[in-house]
Design a binder for these strands. Structure first.
Lengths: 186, 186, 186, 186
DNA sequence: CATGAATGAGAATTCATTCAT
DNA sequence: CATGAATGAATTCTCATTCAT
């Protein structure tokens, strides 16, 4: 059997994306994970802690997936599209993760410490931004604004694709990515 | 005194934006609203109903505010910037509304019926889209995609401005709106 | 029906003196008091608070009972015997109170604030001590020592009488009180 | 290393006097004693058994300490003062023991069997009482009453000395012991 | 209509005890 | 013999909802 911590996180995500955080009692998580209630508390201090751990875990997976095929040697434009494209593809493949994230990015349950920790994962994106700046490819907008615009639009797009019955074909994804680039390109 | 329903909605928003949903019991809403618990149940079937009503109420206010200065006779580009600019300005003036909305758009508490009802408010925006299409100003993207891209980016931008200490000056807002337009413009 | 707070305190004392504090769940108190669980929490913040309130309540009753027949105009020796005699008689009539007190005087559950509040009840006894001192009737011992010696011995005596099958006859109580006086008298 | 049973008892006393009974789980005892949880259950049937053993252990140490310098050949008055003086000195040197005892003498956790066993330790004191009686030195009070009065007052005194910042000097202890003797002396 | 005390189902969390290694 | 991860019954406490006044 997979290690217990992993099983708990997996089960929690499943249930939360189905019923929401408030709607899923610890007892149900334990039951579905086939573990005793107390076992969860061996691995996580309390319910909030479990949620924060899950949040962090997902963020890490997203970062890893996004970077799969990204190279620092890529041309800037290709780099952007690679990163954002894989971000969207990740959510396409993991809809529960997206729904979870959307619900908790702004929740007071996610602590400042957790949020801080996710910041560090933006490092490759920051490097890309600096590269783009140097080549004078971007609009006159601060890093945070660029990030917010791209992130907001990309996630919104991912949600739409998940909702649509036909799903995401490569053609329309490519067009979406072009739009994203146009938004920030000079 | 304003009518009771309004007072309840206002108080609920206040408390939820201060403490989050889980942390605000009905009894506290009643107390702060200076009403008996039973009174709330006269106006709202239950807590979920209250939340859905609040959600709808806020959406309506946003729509109204966005349309304040929008005219169907405006040039398309100006129309877009007017609608989106006022959307962002609304959140600037009503931060609690934004934080509430962010937390509940994806919550299972908001029912399908409520979600459906908010759709209708996009009507003026749809009209604008059709006008833009006719003039061949937009990229080859379906209405929903255009809407998702713009909405996601705009709200993301609003959140950033709220978080930033210095806030939103006209200059940077204008540049943000230009970026949004570039995203969808042909 | 008596007021709810009183009923809860009474029931709690009953159960705790039978089973101890740890051994009596709040649910059992509610059941025996014929009240809903939540009702207890309307009147007491939590279990510890309930215990502190009970502690204080009993201390007040003891003080009142001790002072029933005590007069500041009594000769000092009679005053001592009156106060201590009624203290012992109170416990004779209210065994549960004694067992409760014995168990919790030294428990960390009783807060410093509660302890402080009980101090004030010693006032009449302090007055008596001052009067005795002025008349040079007592040994050269500080007030606290006199109090500790008398209190300790008196309560120990009360416990013994409760345990003994035959109980406390006036004759032996009188002899016990004489012994107490001899302990502190010059 | 001392034998395990001793280590467990010592650690339990330590933790309970620091945090109270309710606040110290078996797991914490195991951890602090540097033993596995299961090991404790090898030496004690369950938590209550551990507590009863600790209670008995402390009582034995007290009896031993009290008798250190006591001789059956001592004059009665000196004998009393010797026994009671060393009782008080023991608590002075072992405050945790006193606090533990105070909390558990009246607790339902301590079984009748345990209580019975502690009775036997009063044997030397009983002998002393008989000797005093024969010499007609005591008031007309039954053995249990004498014991209760002296025990109650002595422990009360010890507690006071522990609480007082300056502690117990020989001078004031001597005066306290005189008072105790006066209480029971004819 | 309005009130808010009372309710009790339901949730989080703890911890004594067991038992496979 | 020793270990400590796993268990789940038991407990405290919260809060949406009702209903007698």
């Amino acid at each position: 059997m997979a290690d217990k911590k992993t099983v708990i996180l997996k089960t929690t995500l499943e249930l939360i994306s189905e019923q929401g955080f408030v709607g899923t009692p610890m007892s149900q998580i334990a039951q579905r994970a086939d573990l005793g209630m107390g076992t969860i508390y061996r691995y996580f201090k309390n319910k909030d802690d479990l949620l924060n751990a899950l949040y962090l875990d997902i963020k890490k997976k997203i970062a890893a997936y996004s970077l799969r095929n990204y190279l620092e040697t890529m041309p800037v434009r290709d780099g952007f599209k690679q990163l954002l494209g894989d971000l969207i593809r990740y959510f396409k493949e993991n809809p529960a993760e997206l729904s979870f994230l959307e619900q908790y990015v702004n929740s007071p349950i996610i602590t400042a410490a957790t949020r801080e920790e996710t910041m560090r994962m933006a490092e490759p994106f920051e490097e890309l931004y600096r590269r783009a700046k140097k080549q004078n490819l971007l609009k006159e907008l601060p890093f945070e604004v660029i990030g917010a615009l791209l992130g907001g639009a990309a996630i919104s797009l991912a949600k739409l694709y998940l909702a649509s019955a036909d799903g995401l074909d490569d053609e329309s994804l490519a067009r979406g990515l072009d739009a994203l680039w146009d938004m920030v390109a000079r």
